[in-house]
Nucleic acid binder design. Structure first.
Length: 595
RNA sequence: CGGGGCGUAGCGCAGCCUGGUAGCGCACCUGCCUUGGGCGCAGGGGGUCACAGGUUCAAAUCCUGUCGCCCCGACCA
């Protein structure tokens, strides 16, 4: 049994001024964590205990599908050079030098390391499939650490890696992780959704994120109540309700729109709807100039969206094959469009069209012309309103493919709440969420680049296919707190709480109360519960406030009613209290906590 | 890296504009008192005012620079 009076549980009456989200405020106030630097935290007694409980759950479930390893946190440069990610990871990688001047880095993920192991010791298809996992600190020099434990530079990750002979095998390993992750998050009491996701820097063909809805989250998720479709906004699509085109079949015609620079202004002025207008965004794509290494080359990118739609930058990044982009500067806009922002449009602009590939010189010429990317929602529309590329003028009767020709049609817009689910058509919901787990089908990216081969049944060399899978363990804790808190503190689900029950004698100077509390704590411990005894010589109010704060799901008050042979059992989440006989406290409590 | 904000006791803040004694609440220590929701009274300890340089007889306060932290954007568990 742990006695509070002997422990270091530095609770705070007030949250630090720079804590914004609930989990951050309460983790600090409850004495779970202390900050050392931006995105660097110490876990104190209660915090570490909760984290260890999370680890227990994760380990128990992972052991059912994989083998636990422990990989190094310091990696030599050479391994990362093999996959090409020494460069790719850029500033996010913590780098250091050893005494001989050799380059090292702190591990931010371990695809290279497991592949290196596989490279040396996987020889035959008979050794496949493999699932290897570890629970270990990861180091990432985040550009912006945030929100307490939500985004930090050192964190604990459960990461696993699968090796299979073929895609069918990968599907099995992937599904195993999917199911295991569901079990883990279910056991941790989290309400989460699994969403289709964007694979990002990991690469690969398919990926799912496990997301917990919370205002503290950094991602937006679109989901359908009816059919269960759910996707990160970076991927989400939707069915659009039909919209009315403007009547007629006239040719583009300039209309005078003095000072009307926004979709709304133009709509009001001309009596049209945003859905009947084209939003023209002027961007510059930035890429390495091959002729002048080290210098950047800019290429105009014109994005066309329906007037009421917004650009999804992740989708655009996908369309530009990951090249960086930025908004055009005012002088660049004038150079490309010969008109100021607010009056831009695609008609009569010299643009790169995919049909016009000719000679080498034409190609070079083409490469400097603006790319025009049109969102699919403009397909089949007619008589739209666009800027006229002349100050104070717009064009009406603009019809795509007649009056302008996009380089490419793509999905670029953000899906929005209320639009139709792409699968079943019922209205989509959009909410903020935080990512707690992510699974990837990596494909051959690492096995190929690092030269992993095994012999198949026929003695032929084949490249194994890989998957990688991660869970942010601190985020499970933070998500649980985001989900379960009120003005006074938070409560953790039983299986990840640092203690399951807190026994609170209201006055320890009363020898009967104290000894009764000790007896109860002993009985509960003997019954297999983890118990914290608040034996501090404090007033009851102080103890109750602390009890509400620190996340322990149940509390037993040992007070006045002891004379009647009774104590109170209080549930932190519901605040419901029930009297229990001291004699059979263990049985009563077990019924409540483990029904 | 772009934009915004903040650095004064463990925590939360005032003081800075208008330069001259470093202050409040909570926490902490001692004693008394009190014991079902951060109780009361009395006494007490704790500060290189982020750092460096400058202006000045004199700098927490004015000027310059640096660093750190937080928030908003591009990245991710």
């Amino acid at each position: 049994m742990h006695r509070w009076s002997q422990l270091f549980i530095p609770t705070l009456r007030e949250a630090p001024a720079d804590a914004e989200v609930a989990s951050h405020k309460f983790l600090v106030r409850s004495g779970y964590i202390r900050q050392l630097g931006a995105g660097i935290y110490s876990y104190l007694f209660l915090g570490q205990r909760a984290l260890l409980r999370v680890i227990d759950v994760v380990r128990e479930e992972m052991n059912k599908i994989g083998q636990e390893f422990l990989l190094p946190a310091i990696h030599p440069r050479e391994v990362w050079e093999k996959s090409g990610r020494w460069q790719v990871m850029g500033e996010n990688m913590f780098r250091l030098k050893d005494r001989k001047g050799g380059d090292l880095c702190l591990g931010m993920t371990h695809e290279e390391i497991v592949t290196e192991i596989a490279l040396k010791d996987l020889r035959s298809y008979k050794q496949l499939p493999q699932i290897w996992y570890q629970i270990q600190s990861k180091f990432r020099d985040e550009p912006r650490p945030r929100s307490g434990l939500l985004r930090v530079r050192q964190f604990t990750m459960k990461d696993s890696y699968s090796f299979d002979l073929d895609e069918a095998g990968l599907d099995v390993s992937y599904q195993k992780h999917y199911d295991t992750y569901c079990r883990i998050f279910d056991r941790c009491g989290l309400q989460y959704v699994v969403v289709e996701a964007h694979s990002g820097a990991m690469g690969g063909s398919q990926s799912h994120e496990f997301m917990v809805y919370t205002e503290a989250g950094e991602d937006m998720v679109a989901s359908c109540q009816k059919c269960g479709y759910a996707a990160n906004m970076e991927k989400a699509t939707s069915q659009l309700a039909p919209v009315q085109d403007l009547p007629g079949d006239g040719q583009p015609e300039e209309v005078h729109t003095p000072g009307m620079k926004t979709i709304e202004d133009v709509g009001k002025f001309l009596g049209t709807l945003p859905t009947q207008e084209v939003k023209t965004l002027a961007l510059m794509q930035m890429e390495e100039d091959k002729k002048n290494p080290g210098r950047q080359k800019a290429r105009p990118v014109i994005v066309l969206l329906r007037g009421d739609h917004s650009l999804n930058e992740a989708k655009l990044a996908g369309a530009l094959e990951g090249k960086e982009f930025r908004p055009m500067l005012p002088e660049e806009i004038v150079r490309v469009f010969m008109a100021p922002a607010g009056f831009l449009g695609p008609v009569k602009l010299p643009t790169a069209s995919s049909t016009a590939l000719g000679s080498e010189t034409q190609k070079i010429l083409l490469e400097s012309l603006p790319l025009v990317l049109a969102d699919n929602a403009l397909k089949g529309r007619k008589n739209l309103i666009t800027g006229a590329n002349r100050e104070d003028y717009h064009l009406k009767n603009v019809t795509p493919l007649r009056d302008f020709h996009p380089t490419e049609w793509v999905d670029l817009r953000n899906a929005a709440a209320g639009e139709g689910c792409p699968k079943c058509g019922s209205p989509l919901e959009v909410g903020k969420a935080m990512e707690i787990g992510h699974i990837f089908k990596l494909g051959y990216k690492y096995s190929e680049s690092m030269g992993l081969r095994v012999l198949d049944e026929s003695g032929k060399e084949v490249t194994p296919i890989m998957g990688s899978y991660g869970i942010g363990l601190e985020r499970i804790l933070a998500a649980a707190i985001e989900q379960n808190n009120d003005a006074d503190g938070f409560w953790l689900p039983l299986c990840i709480a640092p203690f399951e029950v807190l026994v609170t004698p209201t006055n320890v100077t009363d020898a009967v109360l104290l000894s009764t509390a000790e007896e109860i704590a002993q009985k509960l411990e003997a019954a297999g519960f983890s118990v914290l005894l608040d034996d501090r010589d404090e007033r009851p109010g102080v103890k109750f406030k602390d009890a509400d704060l620190v996340g322990i799901p149940y509390r037993i008050n040992v007070g006045k009613k002891v004379t009647e042979g009774k104590v109170e059992v209080v549930s932190r989440s519901t605040r419901k209290s029930q009297d229990a006989n001291i004699g059979d406290i263990a049985a009563t409590f077990a019924q409540l906590a483990r029904p």
